[in-house]
Design a binder for these strands. Structure first.
Length: 637
DNA sequence: ACGCGATGCGCC
DNA sequence: AAAGGGCGCATCGCGT
C-alpha cells in the first residue's frame, strides 16, 4: 500500500461558501520531500490517487479537502465515494476522536488539560512534539492568505507560504505512522464516510424564507413587548430588558415556601449542611415546571407565558436571519461519545417542535423537502443490542410482530389484549390514549436507567400526572413485559461496581471509556441508531451526488437529526426520490439491526413542518399542506 | 472587557 | 442501592 498525505489551501470559508475555491494542494508520500501543486496539478494528483486501489490517502479533516477538490472538479465525486467505500482513507483527526472516546478523553484530555479540539496544531504537538500555535496566531501567517496567491506560479511564491502548506501535508503523514501502530479502531472506515456525507450536506446548506422569518420575528417581538412593562414593574425584568433572576427566585420562594425546589447544586449543598437565607434564594429553581406551580403570582405566570417567545426571539431568530441571505452552512460533528452526531453554528438539530421556527426553513426553488425518519428508532437499537447480549428479546418480538410498542405496553397496563387496545386507540378512546402516553414515557425513559421516582417528573414533562406509588407499579410492569431488561440493567450494573467501565458495544465493537450506570444503559439505546442512520446518510449522499441511475440523483441532503434525514428533491421526481430514501434508510439500518424490523416513512412539504404526513394521490407523493396555515408556501408551481 | 461556572432549555 | 443520556447555546452573576 502506498501512503499519500494531502492537504489543500483555499480561499476563505465565508457564509454560503463552505467548499471554497482550491488554490493549491500539498502532498507527501514518505519519499524525499513533500511537494506542492496548483489547482490543475492537485486535481490530477488526487484524482490518480483516488483511482489507485493501492493508495491510502491520509490527512486531517479530509472531508473538507475532498469537498474542495470535488467543487473544483465534480467528476471526482464518484471516485471519492468509491474510495470511501473501500476504506482507503486515514484521517488522523477521526482516529484521534475514536481513541479519545475509547479512553474517556473526549471531554477532558489529561495530556493537554482540556477538551481536545482534534486540530492539526494539537495533534502535531501531541504526536510530534511540534509547536504550531505560533504560526496559527501570527497575523502575517500565510494560513489565511492563500487567495492572494491564486494563479501565481509556484516559483514566485514566498518561501513562508510554501513551507506552511508543506507542513500541513507532512505532519499528518508522520502522525499517521504513529497512529497506525495502534491498529484501526472499530467503525474507523465508516466514520470517514459519515464525515464526508455530513460535510457535503453542510456545504450545500439550507435556506430560510425572509418573509417567514420577518413575520415570526414580529409576532414574537409583539408578544414580548406586550408583557415587558408589567414584568419591569414587578422587578423580574430590568429597564434594559435583562432578567433579575434574584427577584424571580424570591418570588418563587414566596409562592411555594419551603416546597420550592432547589437547583442541582443546591440539593447537593443542602444534603451536607443547612442553607443560609441568601443561599436558599440563590439555589431556588426557576425552571418552567416550577413557575407553573406558582400560578397565583401573576408576574411569574406572565414570565412563563413569554419564556418560549423570548428564547426563540433571542436564540433562534438570529440563526434564521442568516439563512435569508446565504444558505446556512452548519457544522456537523461526525462522532460523539454515543456514536451520534452533533451540530453547531447553528445547531440545526434542536429547532423547537412548536410551529414557528421550523417553518422558516424552505427548499430551493424547484425543490421540495422530503423528510424521512425511523419509527421508534432507539427501541430498535436497544432491541438488537438485547438480542446480541442475551440471544433474544421480547421487545424485538413485539417490534417484529408489527406492533406499536406504546400501544402494546398500554394494553398491558389496561389489562386488555393488544388488538382491543389498538382498536380503542384508533377510535379515540381517552383511557387508552392516556395509557399510551404513559407507555411512551416508560419506553423512552426506563431504558436509560430512569428510577421510578424520577419517572414522575419525566412523565409530567410528557403531559402525564402520576403518583410515585403508581410509578413503581408501572416500572415493575414494564420490566415484566420486557424481562430481558432486568438482565440488561444487571449487565451494566455488574460492570460499574468498581466505578466506571469500558463499554464495548456487542455488535459494532465501538469502545467508549469512562462509562457509568446511566450512560451505560443509554449506550445500547442510542448507538446502533446513530451508526445505522449515518450509514444511510452516506448511501443517500452517494446516490444524490454521483449515481445518475438513482431516483435520488440531483436531490441533496440538507439536515440530519439523529434518526431523520431531510433532503431537497426536485419537484419533478418527488415520489421516486422519497421511495428511494425510505428504502435506503431501512436497508442501511438493517445492516446494524438485522434481527429487528425497523421501518421508516417519508413525507414531503414546502416548508420544514414537524407534522408533515405522507399524502399520496394516484400513486404520487404530494407535498403535505398545513391544515391551519400561518404562512403561504414559499415556492409553488 | 472578558472568562467561567451554574442554570435552564431546545432537540432526539 | 440507586442512577435516562447525548449534544449546543444563551443568559446571569461573579470574578479577574
Amino acid at each position: 500500500m502506498r501512503n499519500l498525505s494531502f492537504d489543500t489551501e483555499t480561499e476563505l470559508i465565508a457564509p454560503g461558501r463552505y467548499a471554497p475555491r482550491l488554490i493549491c494542494g500539498s502532498f507527501y508520500d514518505g519519499d524525499f520531500s513533500p511537494w506542492l501543486e496548483l489547482r490543475a496539478g492537485t486535481i490530477k494528483t488526487i484524482g490518480d490517487a483516488l483511482e489507485d486501489s493501492e493508495t491510502r490517502i491520509i490527512g486531517l479533516n479530509l472531508a473538507f479537502d475532498l469537498a474542495v477538490v470535488c467543487q473544483a472538479e465534480p467528476a471526482l465525486l464518484p471516485t471519492v465515494f468509491d474510495a470511501l467505500d473501500a476504506g482507503r482513507f486515514w484521517d488522523v483527526g477521526l482516529f484521534e476522536r475514536l481513541k479519545a472516546i475509547a479512553l474517556n478523553h473526549f471531554r477532558l484530555d489529561p495530556q493537554i488539560g482540556r477538551r481536545p479540539s482534534f486540530s492539526l496544531a494539537e495533534l502535531s504537538s501531541k504526536y510530534l512534539g511540534k509547536d504550531r500555535s505560533v504560526e496559527k496566531n501570527d497575523p502575517n501567517s500565510w494560513r489565511l492568505r492563500y487567495a492572494e496567491l491564486d494563479g501565481i506560479p509556484l516559483e514566485k511564491w514566498p518561501q513562508a507560504a510554501k513551507s506552511y502548506a508543506l507542513d500541513d501535508a507532512k505532519d499528518p503523514f508522520e502522525i499517521y505512522e504513529k497512529q497506525a501502530r495502534e491498529g484501526t479502531p472499530p467503525l474507523f472506515k465508516e466514520t470517514h464516510s459519515h464525515a464526508f456525507a455530513l460535510h457535503l450536506m453542510a456545504a450545500w446548506g439550507i435556506r430560510t424564507d425572509p418573509a417567514a422569518v420577518a413575520a415570526l420575528k414580529k409576532r414574537l417581538q409583539e408578544r414580548v413587548d406586550a408583557a415587558t412593562p408589567q414584568l419591569i414593574a414587578s422587578g423580574i425584568l430590568r429597564e434594559n430588558g435583562s432578567e433579575n433572576t434574584n427577584e424571580t427566585k424570591k418570588r418563587v420562594l414566596a409562592a411555594l415556601g419551603s416546597a420550592a425546589p432547589l437547583t442541582k447544586s443546591g440539593e447537593k449543598l443542602a444534603s451536607e449542611r443547612d442553607l443560609t437565607e441568601d443561599e436558599r434564594i440563590k439555589y431556588t429553581k426557576t425552571s418552567a415546571d416550577v413557575l407553573e406551580e406558582c400560578g397565583r403570582d401573576p408576574a411569574l405566570s406572565l414570565r412563563l407565558d413569554i419564556a418560549k417567545d423570548r428564547d426563540e426571539l433571542s436564540n433562534f431568530v438570529p440563526r434564521l436571519e442568516l439563512g435569508t441571505v446565504h444558505p446556512i452552512n452548519a457544522r456537523f460533528s461526525v462522532l460523539v461519545s454515543t456514536g451520534r452526531t452533533a451540530c453547531s453554528k447553528p445547531n440545526l438539530q434542536n429547532n423547537p417542535r412548536r410551529s414557528g421556527v421550523r417553518e422558516c426553513f424552505v427548499p430551493r426553488p424547484g425543490f421540495v423537502f422530503v423528510f424521512c425518519d425511523y419509527h421508534v428508532a432507539e427501541l430498535c437499537s436497544l432491541a438488537q443490542t438485547l438480542i446480541d447480549l442475551f440471544g433474544g428479546s421480547k421487545m424485538a418480538d413485539e417490534i417484529n410482530a408489527g406492533r406499536d410498542l406504546h400501544v402494546a405496553f398500554a394494553a398491558g397496563l389496561a389489562g386488555v389484549s393488544y388488538e382491543d387496545a389498538l382498536t380503542r386507540y384508533k377510535a379515540g378512546d381517552k383511557t387508552i390514549k392516556e395509557l399510551r402516553q404513559v407507555a411512551k414515557a416508560a419506553n423512552f425513559g426506563y431504558p436509560g436507567g430512569l428510577s421510578a421516582a424520577r419517572f414522575v417528573d419525566y412523565a409530567a414533562s410528557m403531559g402525564v400526572e402520576i403518583s410515585e406509588a403508581k410509578s413503581k407499579e408501572i416500572r415493575s410492569a414494564w420490566l415484566d413485559s420486557f424481562p430481558e431488561m432486568r438482565r440488561y440493567f444487571d449487565w451494566i450494573a455488574s460492570q460499574t461496581r468498581t466505578g466506571s467501565f469500558e463499554h464495548i458495544h456487542p455488535r459494532t465493537g465501538f469502545i467508549r471509556g469512562g462509562v457509568s450506570y446511566c450512560d451505560g444503559c443509554n449506550q445500547g439505546f442510542q448507538h446502533l441508531t446513530a451508526i445505522g442512520a449515518k450509514d444511510a446518510l452516506f448511501s443517500v449522499a452517494r446516490e444524490c451526488y454521483s449515481d445518475p441511475s438513482s431516483p435520488l440523483f440531483g436531490s441533496r441532503p440538507v439536515v440530519f437529526v439523529h434518526d431523520e434525514i431531510i433532503i431537497e428533491a426536485p419537484e419533478t421526481r418527488l415520489t421516486a426520490a422519497a421511495a428511494r430514501l425510505e428504502s435506503i434508510m431501512v436497508d442501511q439500518m438493517r445492516r446494524y439491526t438485522p434481527d429487528v424490523d425497523c421501518k421508516a416513512t417519508a413525507a414531503a412539504a414546502r416548508r420544514w413542518y414537524k407534522d408533515a404526513q405522507p399524502v399520496v394521490l394516484d400513486g404520487e407523493l404530494l407535498p403535505w399542506t398545513c391544515p391551519t396555515p400561518v404562512l403561504k408556501p414559499a415556492f409553488s408551481r
